[in-house]
């Protein structure tokens, strides 16, 4: 596998690990008695995964996508896959590392306080839900963009 293919695979799989970790944070926060250690571990995994996926995805975009894939999609049957989905994806994605960092920071700094204050726990769960929803949109948009590259 060449470096570009490896970059694409790592970008997708690490991003997916981030979404799964965010989903684990959400489900953990919705429990009556969440495990603080589990929340710390999964929220950090989510943050680290989004950062890594961002860096690798950025590399792939600059080195390959922009020059080779983007023109193919724009000339193909579904140009909106780039003009609408990719353009949205590359901006909306920016929420993920920052929101997941906030979630990790709150869990790491406030610790047991989150488990004792129901409103705080519910707000954090809502934020984790937003991260999962954005992450899911990003992943699905990626499938459509890749599909459009072959049309």
């Amino acid at each position: 596998m060449d470096i570009l293919s490896s970059a694409l695979v790592l970008h997708v799989i690490i991003g997916l690990v981030g979404i799964i970790a965010s989903y684990a944070v959400l489900m953990g926060l919705l429990k009556r008695a969440p495990s603080l250690a589990f929340l710390k571990y999964t929220s950090f995994t989510a943050f680290a995964s989004y950062m890594l996926s961002w860096l690798i995805g950025g590399y792939y975009y600059v080195i390959y996508y922009g020059a080779a894939v983007k023109p193919t999609i724009k000339e193909g049957a579904y140009p909106w896959a780039h003009t609408l989905l990719m353009e949205s994806k590359e901006h909306i994605f920016l929420f993920l590392p920052f929101l997941s960092f906030i979630i990790f920071l709150v869990i790491a700094l406030l610790g047991r306080e989150i488990l004792e204050k129901r409103d705080l726990k519910n707000s954090l769960a809502a934020l984790a839900g937003v991260v999962v929803a954005i992450g899911t949109f990003i992943a699905l948009a990626g499938i459509v963009i890749s599909g459009a590259a072959g049309q």
Binding site: S5, V9, V12, I20, L140, G147, G150, Q151
Partner: peptide, 29 residues
């Protein structure tokens, strides 16, 4: 989910991108 996305990557890398817009695949997703 992980293996499913692995298949999607395999389609992309093998030039079978058309399969990524398949109706049955999106129903499964």
């Amino acid at each position: 989910v992980l293996s499913g996305f692995g298949f999607l990557l395999l389609y992309r890398l093998n030039g079978a991108e058309a399969l990524l817009l398949n109706g049955a695949l999106w129903a499964k997703l």
